[in-house]
């Protein structure tokens, strides 16, 4: 796929506080890229730089290999779904969605057709004449999506577009948005701090923290091969422990040596280790590699979340079997379930 957008070493500060610390990122045509990170890590700021609403202190932004840092927002082939919708309160739903087309002076029939089609797509047929101020949060959000999409931009920026929706509608809209993206065939840059949403929708996930990119990769990469403790912790629940890589394929933690499949680290290097809760099995005590006592078990719908206490730590384990609290058990996992990461700041 063709490279469409490139951020080169973007640095941005507001009143002396550094918000983006050198972002390098390439985005391709038709890609669904998600910026994922905790609140305040600079996701919206990065989008605003791409939209042209603020300019970076350092670095370059390329669109189709052309530097666009000095192009005003209204000349960029990018549309945005704003975090707080930013609908025009003095207009009804139809006029909001038609705004961009009217600015481009398209003829009346075309506008009417396109707006109707778009409202159908976001499930708001028949709402044309409603004032937007009287819509629910979820409906407003869908108007915002329609208003941006109707312009058929090459790139759509979505800043937490589903934040205000309830779980069910959120799931529906996730599927709907993904479908729209594939059908219309445009690049989506999507911001969220919901890791599950990021995992289900994206082609590529960009994990950010405190103005820096932590990892760029496919959802499976990010989930299975987190590059550091932050990513492992942010993506899904994890058992994250400290250990020492004795030599290739041998790691020591909790005063025990385990076989693993990672190699290429320095011998005796201190590392972080991830064990996903669903990769650990609860087995009879004599069959376990680690022994512990079941402290609690919580039903979570699909699985039980079990906490097992050992002298060193508490393990979180996901299992579909019911277990007895206070029972001594063994924990079992395979070498490939142990994922070794460099400690943050040492790679």
């Amino acid at each position: 796929m063709r490279k469409l957008i490139e951020f080169q070493n973007i640095v941005k500060s507001f009143n002396d506080s550094l918000v983006l610390k050198g972002i390098n990122l390439s985005i391709h045509e038709n890609e669904f890229v998600t910026l994922l990170g905790p609140s305040g890590c600079g996701k919206t700021t990065l989008l605003r730089i791409l939209g042209g609403f603020i300019s970076q202190n350092e670095g370059h932004v390329y669109f189709d290999d052309i530097e666009i840092s000095n192009v005003p927002p209204y000349k960029r082939e990018i549309n945005t779904v704003f975090q707080r919708y930013a609908l025009f309160p003095h207009m009804n739903v139809f006029d909001n969605v038609a705004f961009g087309l009217r600015i481009k002076k398209q003829d009346k029939n075309t506008i009417e057709q396109k707006v109707k089609k778009m409202l159908k797509l976001v499930n708001l047929e028949g709402y044309e004449d409603r004032p937007v101020t009287l819509l629910s949060g979820g409906q407003q959000q869908r108007v915002a999506i329609a208003r941006a999409l109707v312009n058929e931009p090459m790139v759509l920026l979505l800043d937490e577009p589903l934040g205000a929706l309830d779980l069910k509608l959120r799931k529906e809209m996730q599927i709907e948005l993904k479908k729209i993206q594939q059908e219309v065939g445009i690049t989506f840059i999507y911001v969220t701090h919901d890791q599950e949403e990021a995992l289900t929708m994206s082609d590529t996930i960009v994990v950010m923290n405190a103005g820096e990119i932590q990892q760029i990769g496919t959802p499976t990469d990010i989930y299975n091969e987190p590059e550091n403790r932050f990513v492992a912790d942010f993506i899904g629940e994890s058992n994250i422990l400290e250990g020492v890589m004795l030599e290739d394929y041998k790691v020591k933690f909790d005063d025990q040596v385990f076989e693993c499949i990672d190699y290429g680290f320095e011998d005796n290097l201190e590392v972080d280790i991830v064990l996903r809760p669903e990769d650990i099995d609860i087995v009879p005590i004599e069959m376990g590699r680690i022994k512990g006592v079941i402290k609690s078990s919580l039903f979570k719908g699909v699985h039980f979340e079990v906490v097992v206490e050992t002298p060193y730590r508490e393990w979180i384990i996901h299992t579909t079997d019911k277990v007895e609290v206070d029972k001594e058990v063994g924990l079992h996992f395979f070498p490939e379930d142990i994922h070794i990461m460099y400690k943050m700041g040492t790679y």
Binding site: F53, P73, Y74, N79, R84, A86, F99, N151
Partner: peptide, 16 residues
């Protein structure tokens, strides 16, 4: 006025 509103207009192609 929500400051995003003016940005939204620019975003949709309106000149200042």
């Amino acid at each position: 006025l929500d400051p995003d509103i003016a940005e939204a207009a620019l975003d949709l192609g309106a000149t200042p």
